[in-house]
Measured scan of single mutants.
Amino acid sequence: MTYKLILNGKTLKGETTTEAVDAATAEKVFKQYANDNGVDGEWTYDDATKTFTVTE
């Protein structure tokens, strides 16, 4: 399945996607991606759209 991440960081905004077997796996990938890019904030997940959002 394809999962999407929306980044609403103070210095980085954008979107990315990943292929993962489940939401938990996608979340690990996205949290590492956000961490690597210096984005740390509040996370939400919408199962209907398979979209994670992180907002600083």
Rank of each mutant, 00 (worst) to 15 (best):
M1F: 14
M1W: 13
M1C: 12
M1G: 12
T2L: 14
T2S: 09
Y3L: 01
Y3M: 02
K4I: 14
K4N: 06
K4Q: 06
L5G: 01
I6F: 06
I6C: 05
L7P: 01
L7V: 14
N8K: 13
K10I: 15
K10V: 13
K10S: 11
L12A: 08
L12H: 13
K13S: 10
K13N: 07
K13A: 07
G14M: 13
G14T: 14
E15H: 11
T16M: 14
T16P: 03
T16Q: 11
T17H: 12
T17Q: 11
T18R: 05
T18G: 03
E19W: 14
E19D: 09
E19M: 14
E19A: 08
A20L: 03
A20M: 03
V21K: 12
V21P: 15
V21N: 11
D22I: 03
D22F: 04
A23V: 12
A23Y: 14
A24V: 10
T25F: 07
T25R: 06
T25W: 09
A26M: 01
A26P: 00
A26D: 00
K28L: 12
V29K: 08
V29A: 12
V29N: 07
V29L: 09
F30Y: 02
K31P: 00
K31M: 08
K31D: 02
Q32S: 08
Q32N: 08
A34I: 06
A34D: 00
A34Q: 02
A34N: 02
A34M: 06
N35V: 13
N35I: 15
D36H: 09
D36M: 12
D36G: 06
N37M: 15
G38F: 07
G38E: 06
G38N: 11
D40S: 15
D40E: 13
D40Q: 14
D40G: 08
G41I: 02
G41Y: 03
G41W: 06
G41T: 02
E42T: 13
W43P: 00
T44S: 13
T44Q: 11
T44C: 08
T44F: 10
T44K: 08
Y45G: 00
Y45Q: 01
Y45L: 02
Y45P: 00
D46L: 04
D46C: 09
D46V: 05
D47Y: 08
D47K: 10
D47V: 11
D47T: 09
A48F: 12
A48G: 09
A48E: 14
A48M: 12
T49H: 06
T49N: 07
T49A: 08
T49W: 04
T49F: 05
K50P: 00
K50M: 12
T51G: 02
T51E: 04
T51P: 00
T51W: 02
F52E: 00
F52C: 02
T53V: 09
V54H: 01
V54N: 02
V54P: 00
T55M: 06
T55F: 09
T55I: 08
E56G: 05
E56V: 09
